[in-house]
Design a binder for these strands. Sequence first.
DNA 1: ACCCAGGAAATTC
DNA 2: GAATTTCATGGG
Length: 269
Amino acid sequence: MKVTGITDFDLAQTLDCGQAFRWAEQPDGAFIGVAHGKILTLRKNGDELELDGVEPSEYDSIWKRYFDLDMDYGAVRTELSKLHPILNEAAEFAPGIRILNQEPWEALCSFIISQNNNIPRIKGIIERLCAMCGEQLADNMYTFPSAEKIAAMTAEDLAPIRAGFRARYIIDGARRVADGSVDLEKIRTMPIDEARKELMQITGVGVKVADCTLLYGLHRLDCFPLDVWMKRAMSVLFPSMTATDFGEYGGIAQQYIFHYSRLHPELFE
DNA sequence: ACCCAGGAAATTC
DNA sequence: GAATTTCATGGG
């Protein structure tokens, strides 16, 4: 199906800005990925979004929310741009970024894998994890494995995905999610400090991984994850500001700044 | 050989 | 308690 009137949405900016790891750009500019247990192929032409093989009912129940298409990012950008001229520049650099509503366990697991790691290798580990434990949908296409499936495994079982020291963190996270001692849907509506504390029960989850889980998996848009890039950006570009100064949509500001910084490394030499 | 990567745990001071 | 080291793996 095709949806028209889509503004403030660019596939490359949104799907390749470091918030999600399972989308691949095709030579013709389409993006193919797996989410919610389904393969999806996307194309964008002007304000028209094309979703291969998707019925309107599925768009309404899954994909509209996944891509956060009900939120007015133009209005958010206008407000954020008032906070700082460099934030305005970062937002104008990639105005088509949206914060996805990823599945909470996938976000948690992905950002556990992300620690002290680089993005190409994060993607490789995740794809090997999906191939080993997920359900096959097509050639080389697998669902993201459930926490229950991974909870039944050991760190040695995961050795082939080459996650290194993160393997035992993945398993601890899976076990806690599977047995309910970490309840991601309860965490969704908790006060932010309490939510963070709950996630940090998991071995291998500190403040940064917790914040990424909250922002990308539970859509807590006030979370402002500080990784090495963001710490550099804050000290060099925003020395007068702190994370909380960016307000209720700070997570969106964070994504503009992260993406802008990553594509302008010369700013930090 | 060395340094770094969307960090956090383990150890030491 | 705060500062430092270690943890696998792979690429530049």
